[in-house]
Design a protein around this nucleic acid. Structure first.
Length: 470
RNA sequence: GCCCCCAUCGUCUAGUGGCCCAGGACGCCGCCCUUUCAAGGCGGUAACGGGGAUUCGAAUUCCCCUGGGGGCACCA
């Protein structure tokens, strides 16, 4: 069978890590099988302006390395087709017009819950006669189209990751497929689009598992063609096992991008959330992921998003970069921090110095900022001196200043002799030097940093620090 | 309330009846290396939620319980 999968994000403007993972698994499956990967923006709610946010999603997917094969489909451009499909279902008796107002439904739902019954549409308009419907229409009441759900039996389908799932129809109430303003709900839009786009597989989050029965019912009513096969991915949760949200830290892919995470790292990490290759490898590039990916190996339980493991993995990917690649990845972030004009050669040297120890590009650039901040604006971080534990700071800085004045700048910087002469261990004395030079107690290796700064700027930093403490 | 899904170290996971007194990775702890902190190297800590059943044998199969998550909209 030819695989055609589609990723269908809501046009929210950014890509939540959960959606990104769904996109990735769709893409991996398509690429692994040699199938087609499609992008369809779900915007059946006309009230939103979706073009800008859709462009943002496309940009982020591209950054992640997930390329799609055919022009992007926007559901907002296809309202006429959805309406025609709904009317067809109405004519065939698979759907019926409902004249209940939202207020009435809400009130009856609340009453049902209060009485200990389940919420959901109560079938109020299900069996009205034609005369009654005409009467209601004449009263100017709203008209939505509801899908007529079977009263008996069960809905079953085989989920590609979970196996057979089964729900009694009696627990699924009649649902709206066309709003009173004529726009569709996603049950209908998805069924129509998946049919038209000849979608063969739908891979999406487990939160949609129950709604699949409804999509499948609409699809079956619309066409005798076999429906797509469904696969539901386990959800991604926060450290507290609750739905991953803003209070757990970054959740939008754009935030990770801005913080200096590499697309390779994010793709790699996300792929391992709910899936693992048979051979247990953890560090995999795009090609390796595609080659190893199997839907049957997707796990069933929700996975917690672990920022620390992502950090580790991002560091691994930073270390794999060549210097030109590292520079290319860091440049946009550097511009955002240091402005359009800064010493590019200096940045290159700083990146080379920090590559072996970085977890994110953002943190790396933070550590390098002392090189790019103009000397008259340079300040030691407020809490830095407090973290220096020795009480001989002034002595140390005086000795360092004397050394920097006298030394031969053609030689590599080495302060070890200076520290030893004071009878101090490096562990005791170095934080003071870091603080004076870099403005923070720890950061890029300080000897090399002094060389990057040069004689004048280094001396100026040490003198400023001494003056500040005097 | 009703329905559905799920359940191995703190976290991501391997494991589909004996190879498992459960393996890897992140984190954590210790040691080494070392110009502070990192990074790196080496080592260590740590789990099959509970109870039944099937079987010569169960992390792996079945049932119940418990726990967690999701769903029940004119959102997607």
């Amino acid at each position: 069978m030819t695989v055609r999968v589609r990723f269908s994000p809501a046009p929210s403007g950014s890509l939540h890590v959960g959606s990104a993972r769904t996109a990735l698994f769709n893409w991996l499956y398509a690429r692994h099988t040699g199938g087609t990967f499609l992008l369809r923006i779900e915007d059946t709610d006309q009230s939103r302006s979706t073009d800008t946010s859709a462009a943002g999603i496309e940009d982020t997917l591209t950054w992640l390395g997930l390329d799609w094969d055919e022009p992007v489909v926007r559901q907002s451009q296809r309202f006429a087709e959805y309406r025609a499909a709904a009317e067809q279902l109405l004519d065939e008796g698979r759907a019926y017009a409902c004249s209940c107002t939202p207020e009435e439904i809400k009130a009856r739902n609340e009453a049902a819950v209060a009485a200990g019954r389940s919420p959901g549409y109560d079938g109020h308009c299900r069996e009205l006669s034609d005369a009654e419907r005409q009467q209601l229409a004449a009263e100017g009441r709203p008209r939505t189209l509801r899908f007529r759900t079977p009263e008996t039996g069960a809905s079953t389908f085989v989920d590609l990751v979970r196996g057979e799932v089964r729900v009694e129809w009696s627990t699924i109430t009649d649902f709206v497929i066309l709003r009173s303003d004529g726009t569709p709900l996603f049950f209908l839009a998805n069924a129509v689009d998946d049919l038209e786009m000849r979608i063969s597989h739908v891979i999406r989050g487990e939160d949609l598992l129950d709604s699949t029965h409804r999509v499948l019912a609409v699809r079956a009513a619309l066409s005798p063609e076999p429906p797509p096969q469904f696969a539901h991915l386990p959800l991604i949760v926060g450290p507290d096992r609750a739905k991953l949200s803003k209070r757990h830290g970054a959740v939008a892919l754009e935030e990770f991008r801005a913080a200096g995470y590499l697309p390779d790292a994010l793709r790699n990490y996300l792929a391992l959330l709910g899936w693992a290759p048979e051979d247990g490898r953890e560090l995999l590039d795009a090609d390796e992921l595609v080659a190893a990916f199997e839907l049957s190996r997707v796990t069933h339980a929700a996975a917690a998003f672990d920022h620390e493991k992502l950090d580790w993995m991002n560091g691994e990917w930073i270390r794999r970069l060549t210097l030109p690649e590292l520079e290319a990845a860091a440049l946009p972030l550097a511009r955002a921090r240091f402005g359009e004009t800064f010493d590019l050669a200096l940045l290159r040297r700083a990146l080379a110095l920090g590559q072996g120890r970085a977890t994110t590009l953002g943190a790396l650039l933070d550590q390098a900022d002392f090189l790019f901040i103009p000397d008259d604006q340079f300040r030691v971080r407020p809490d830095a001196w407090a973290e220096v534990t020795t009480d001989r700071v002034d002595e140390i800085l005086a000795a360092v200043e004397a050394h920097l004045e006298a030394r031969d700048w053609g030689e590599p910087v080495d302060l070890r002799g200076v520290i030893e002469a004071l009878g101090l261990k490096a562990r005791q004395a170095m934080p003071a030097v870091y603080t004076a030079i870099e403005g923070r107690r720890a950061g890029l290796p300080v000897f090399e940093s002094i060389e990057l700064l040069g004689r004048d700027r280094s001396l100026q930093r040490v003198r400023a620090a001494r003056a500040q403490r005097a």
